[in-house]
Simulated assay, not measured.
Amino acid sequence: MSKQTKIQARNGANASAASASQAEYSPPQASGTPPDMDTTALIHKRLFVVPSSSKQKEIPFARVNHNKYMVTDKIAYIGTSNWSGDYFVSTAGSALVVNQTASQSVEPTVQSQLQAVFERDWNSDYSTPLTQHSNLKNLC
């Protein structure tokens, strides 16, 4: 089981993250920002659960989608840390940030490949929307 989050800012910027936080986000209005500029973000959350047989359930973590990456309009971030503040402060995880925005290659970029993986999982039959009213006991 893993959490996936898709963030869509109203200005058109997008970010997708696997194993991301479930926190709702609405940035404060910056001083001098025109009043007609909407800076709120919409955050959609889904739970990815891979079904298993009773025998597979006996094996801990046998059916886990445990990705740790983020894709934005410009970069791909691939890391080893869980998406929790203490992991970024207290552990020796590592990460790779890939920016191929100026790539002239005919091959797919790391960013586009990770975006395709995220979209595949996001739209999967194993992915269920999470809301404040979701009963996780029924989902897991």
Rank of each mutant, 00 (worst) to 15 (best):
S90R: 14
H66R: 13
A20F: 08
N82M: 04
L47C: 07
T39L: 10
A76F: 05
I7M: 06
F61P: 08
A41R: 13
S21W: 10
N82G: 01
G93A: 02
T80A: 05
A62S: 13
P35G: 06
S53M: 05
A9V: 03
Y69E: 03
D36K: 02
V49E: 05
M70C: 11
Y25N: 02
N14I: 14
T33N: 13
P28F: 03
H44D: 14
P34Q: 10
L47A: 10
V64T: 15
P51G: 03
N14W: 12
S31P: 07
E58N: 07
K74D: 12
N11E: 02
S52A: 14
D36T: 10
A92G: 15
I7Q: 05
I59Y: 04
K74R: 12
V89N: 11
P34C: 11
G93W: 00
A13T: 12
T80Y: 02
Y25S: 06
T72I: 06
G79W: 02
V64A: 15
S53H: 05
A30S: 07
A15Q: 09
L47G: 04
P60K: 02
S81M: 08
T33H: 13
Q29L: 08
S53L: 04
S52P: 11
D73I: 06
A23N: 07
Q56W: 05
K45I: 15
K55S: 10
Y77L: 13
H66A: 15
T33Q: 15
D73F: 04
Y69G: 02
I7H: 01
A92S: 15
Y25E: 02
K6C: 08
T33D: 13
A62T: 08
S21K: 01
K68S: 03
N82T: 07
K6F: 13
